[in-house]
Simulated assay, not measured.
Amino acid sequence: MAEYDGRGVHGHTVEVIGRRILTGEIAEGATIDGGALESELGISRTVVREAFRVLGAKGLVTARQKRGTYVRPRADWNLLDADILRWQFAGRSDVAFFSNLQEIRGIVEPAGARLAAERRTDEDLAALDAALAAMVAAGDDPEAMTRADLAFHRALLAAAHNELLERMEVVIEVGLSVRDRHMHGSGAAEDSVPVHRSVLAAVRRGSPARAEREMRALLTRAGDDLSHLRRTRRGA
């Protein structure tokens, strides 16, 4: 009996095919052999068709008569889809992915911190306080630190009270979770609690310019950690 990690047979099938497409194991333009998937995964034709339907909605595959189901060009993929983001980052440790994430964070999070300083509520501050406390409590536990770090950045975007900006959490969250696991697991990251505390202090004081400045300082620290990781891997 196959194990599906709580996703169910349909979810597992979508996950398998999606990861293979995103890693290039199934190339753009390639026709996907549904019959081979049925045999390999021990699933029915109905399950494969449903998986193709889900992946089609994400822009990854399409079907044509006489050609079957094939992978669409990358330009057609919904790259902001949460699953596609997760499949891109999962298992990837190359610096290019981390650098792309760093650029997105540099665009989104300073603006989010500025707005949070202007609009935060007592509930927002309580959520940020709880996340920071969790970071302190995490110590050297990389999984706990990652969860707390994500909670902090999620709470910060929520405190901006901008629905469209808050939707960017899917980009920040998926990429940051993988980055954190690599950074905290490698020993390359310095203690990030002080810089997070400085951001929170500026938000609490209602100082937009300082909150933006402190967030840029936090991102600079993250960039330094990334550079250290790059040098370490080159040395290895």
Score class of each variant (00 low, 15 high):
84 I>A: 13
124 D>P: 00
42 G>S: 12
203 V>P: 08
197 R>P: 00
118 E>D: 09
158 A>S: 03
206 G>W: 05
107 I>N: 03
23 T>C: 06
44 S>I: 02
62 T>E: 12
47 V>F: 03
38 E>R: 15
218 L>I: 06
46 T>M: 10
157 L>K: 08
231 R>H: 05
80 L>T: 07
53 R>T: 13
64 R>F: 12
41 L>P: 14
17 I>Q: 08
83 D>Y: 02
198 S>N: 14
196 H>Y: 03
20 R>S: 09
152 F>A: 11
71 V>M: 06
71 V>L: 09
180 D>G: 07
173 E>S: 12
197 R>S: 01
146 T>G: 09
23 T>E: 13
204 R>Q: 08
148 A>T: 04
64 R>T: 09
140 D>F: 09
184 H>I: 00
233 R>V: 12
29 G>E: 08
220 T>S: 09
103 E>K: 03
82 A>M: 12
83 D>M: 02
107 I>W: 08
236 A>E: 14
209 A>F: 02
171 V>F: 04
126 A>D: 15
161 H>G: 00
198 S>H: 12
202 A>P: 06
222 A>R: 11
105 R>A: 15
37 L>T: 03
160 A>F: 08
103 E>H: 10
190 E>A: 06
91 G>K: 06
10 H>L: 12
55 L>D: 13
168 M>P: 00
230 R>W: 09
118 E>M: 15
221 R>K: 09
200 L>R: 13
5 D>W: 12
176 L>Y: 09
124 D>N: 06
48 V>H: 04
81 D>W: 04
139 G>K: 10
134 A>K: 02
117 A>F: 05
153 H>W: 15
48 V>G: 07
95 V>R: 05
107 I>E: 11
133 A>S: 11
230 R>S: 10
223 G>F: 03
27 A>I: 11
191 D>P: 01
127 A>E: 11
228 H>V: 14
205 R>I: 07
7 R>S: 01
86 R>I: 03
11 G>W: 15
30 A>T: 14
147 R>P: 02
2 A>Q: 01
101 L>S: 07
56 G>R: 03
209 A>Y: 11
118 E>W: 06
144 A>P: 04
17 I>N: 05
50 E>L: 08
166 E>S: 07
102 Q>T: 07
115 L>V: 06
66 K>D: 05
173 E>V: 01
7 R>K: 06
221 R>E: 14
96 A>F: 12
28 E>S: 13
153 H>R: 11
148 A>C: 05
206 G>V: 08
118 E>R: 11
73 P>E: 00
98 F>N: 01
148 A>V: 09
2 A>L: 15
74 R>W: 04
37 L>C: 00
48 V>Y: 03
69 T>K: 04
100 N>G: 13
197 R>D: 14
117 A>L: 12
186 S>H: 04
